[in-house]
Amino acid sequence: MAQSLAKEFTKGLWAEIPPFRLVLGLCPTLAVTKSVENGIGMGIATTFVLVFSNLLISLLRNIIPSKVRIACYIVIVATFVTIVELLMQAYTYELFLKLGIFIPLIVVNCIVLGRAEAFANKNGPLPSVADGLGIGMGFTLSLAALGAVRELLGNGTLTIWGGTPIFEMAEGFLPFRFMLEAPGAFIGLGLMLCLMNLIGKK
């Protein structure tokens, strides 16, 4: 049991890591990863929604009629997204301001609905939570990694949390501003995907 739970958890970290392997949830991936901090914040918010929506959907999976299941999922997901939005407003307001419109957009994030449809409605609550947690962590890690690349090249800093950079490039570094633009996000994501395939192939 514990072994299978661990398996559900770890698959989200490499084998099915969302933006890279599933290539899902690209909207927030491209839009908010201007810094590590934004990536982590977005990832944690998505993880929260994923875990709770997976849990609830798997608990209710025998009650929800299959014809209206998508509507039910949306109601559940939207509820948790709104809760996250309110909580972020209340406790991490600056981050909420940076992420802005992309927090409510978690509702239409393919990852959340995809996990509900592909996993939670076929499995029990514990594996579903493990799955949600794993996928969420994978998503957070990917966003943080992409954010790190973009922030380091595009701005010359690394900001993990709280707005103060923990690392700054040496004086005289001229930032590669292209990486902060939207096309830079696409190219950064593509090159990282390349790298992962290269490592995975060996």
Partner: peptide
């Protein structure tokens, strides 16, 4: 084009 977008001054 990418160079010009990033390092206008250079």
């Amino acid at each position: 084009a990418i160079l010009a977008l990033s390092w206008t001054t250079l």
